[in-house]
Amino acid sequence: MNYKIVIRVVSKFLIPYMLLFALYVQWHGDFGPGGGFQAGVIFAAGFILYGIVFGVGNLRDVVPAWVTRTLLAGGVLLYAGVGVAGMLMGGSFLNYSVLAATPTGGQHLGILLVELGVGVTVAAAMITIFATFSSRER
């Protein structure tokens, strides 16, 4: 489909920056606006743009269904696992202060991991929903 060449070139150019911006939002949520939810959505938007422009089949070659399904559950497990780890290390559920040597260090680590779990789940969920919706049309 040559008539989409502008869209193809521009989106090929943009997608890496979208993913990079998503990672920035993910890891920089402690200091500026942003966090797991927003980063996950932006990350998924990069993949969804790829899916729209190049077709869901190609998208599924990049991220197969088993990858998004595993990440979907893995993000939630990471979040809950951080909570359980806090319990095992002597605190209460989702108390991050015991995770590292100092309470603030533990909070930093816990929030980082929890936000990562949120971001992974949100991104996987958005990609899954998009791919499932659009692979139905035939």
Partner: peptide
């Protein structure tokens, strides 16, 4: 020890709520 108060409320003080939201998305 995090400058963004929104993030510390969301992920730490209100950790249960955010866990619930993650489960909703899942």
């Amino acid at each position: 020890g995090i400058p963004n108060v929104v993030t510390s409320i969301l992920a730490s003080y209100r950790g249960y709520d955010t866990l619930g939201e993650t489960f909703v998305i899942f």
